[in-house]
Nucleic acid binder design. Structure first.
Lengths: 242, 242
DNA sequence: CCCACCCAAACTGTCGACAGTCGGTGGTCG
DNA sequence: CGACCACCGACTGTCGACAGTTTGGGTGGG
């Protein structure tokens, strides 16, 4: 009912509260401001963020679907904690996704895709010297997301996007991420070469090795967990290489 | 405190309204009581079900995460419609899941798993003669879910559960499902035999064939879509069989 | 001293209501 | 006759409030 718009716009975004709360919660959980397994009180969160409970509840449901929260009826929301085989399961599912994406992309790999991925690896190499861990992790995930984008299956891309939130949670578990960032960034060149070769078998071997390294990096970097010494069993399960 | 009950709405208890609304909506969408692409009004749904808008909104968010609804900000929720490559993408992702699950299960297949799957196929054969299509589809999905359960990766099982809602949506697209239910049920025996053989390559071939048949069944049963004649390209992508 | 019971505080699930916005409609002007 | 604009209804996003339940602590009994 205001005839003229106010000259200056001090109004903070009163809408899209769900997305803002979801972003805040996601960042807070990834950054481990909330301990894994901790209960999140809706009213407390509402008071802290200055919003009502409705957006908080919807944002929490969103994060539940992304695997960052777990809801128990009449109990509330709990910060997802990765226990038991959760880490192994997440990386095993990631292996499943990446195998398929690389297989799809290999069959349609062209010069444009080659240039896109090469540019991203160069960006990662540049970020490797002197950036915060978060930027390195995001650049790494972005490389893999580009593969899924260009693979051509949008549903697979959505599945990977969902999983990527849990991947960030996994990465956040280890204290000093990317101890050797240059080597990790350079480790993506063989993936591009495998794609360029067009050989499905070579792609699969490189992906298995790459994801296996990432998995071991996280699981062993986590410390001596109960299944730290368990074999990775990724390149061993194809059952057809001598 | 509503005076008159809604016309055809089911009885909703006072608690767990979100789950009840989600179940009702899921069934209604699968049964195509709501046309694909149709806009769902929150207030109208609230009135029909005799509940307030909060549970409806949360249930809609849940179904959005399951791929049955799509939300557009300030516009509302729309019934997911499978257009373009959506069908192919869903079945391609299913192929990705099943390949992995069968590979995992083959490496740990034992007599108990054999018995469980065999019993399920026998149930499917019994249901094949004289049951509604919904029961046949559910029994078929249950066989595959058992594989994922026994594969040992709970995250993969969750991913399959999420996808299964979209699979039901795909199945519901074709008018007369399971035209040859006996043959479809019997088509699961080779999968069990492949698992029992322990050969990863044979498992993969059988899975590729099985899912390819299901995919073609749905895509071609849908009618002459724009990509109905597109090759399935599932058993051709391994790139190593001569 | 320990355990079962009870009560109060806090919380979740749900509801009705208000503000801002979007799409459609009718009227008016060129 | 067509295009533009103001109005209107409906809807989404958000809020505060109420009822039933869970939880933790305190108390009485064994």
């Amino acid at each position: 009912m205001h005839a003229n718009p106010p000259p200056v716009a001090p109004r903070l975004q009163q809408t899209n509260l769900v997305e803002q709360v979801a972003d805040y919660l996601t960042e807070a959980i990834i950054a481990r401001h909330y301990a894994p397994g901790m209960r999140l009180s809706e009213v407390q969160l509402s008071r802290e963020l200055g919003v009502s409970r409705a957006p908080v509840r919807e944002a929490a449901r969103l994060l539940e679907s992304r695997g960052l929260l777990i809801s128990r009826p009449r109990k509330g929301f709990y910060v997802r904690e990765l226990i038991g085989d959760d880490l192994a399961d997440v990386f095993d599912l990631r292996l499943c996704y990446e195998r398929h994406a690389f297989e799809l992309l290999a069959s349609r790999f062209d010069e444009a895709a080659h240039a896109t991925l090469s540019r991203q690896v160069e960006t990662m190499c540049a970020l490797a010297k002197g950036s915060d861990d978060g930027s390195k992790i995001e650049a790494d995930l972005r490389f893999h997301r580009l593969v899924f984008e260009m693979a051509g299956n949008r549903r697979l891309l959505k599945a990977f996007d969902d999983l990527s939130h849990e991947l960030r949670l996994c990465m956040a578990l280890i204290e000093r991420t990317h101890a050797e960032p240059e080597r990790i960034a350079a480790n993506h060149w063989p993936l591009i070469e495998a794609l360029a070769s067009g050989e499905a078998r070579r792609c699969r071997e490189e992906v298995d090795y790459h994801i296996g390294v990432a998995r071991d990096y996280v699981i062993q970097g986590l410390g001596a967990g109960p299944d730290a010494g368990r074999p990775v069993a990724v390149s061993d399960a194809t059952g057809e290489e001598g």
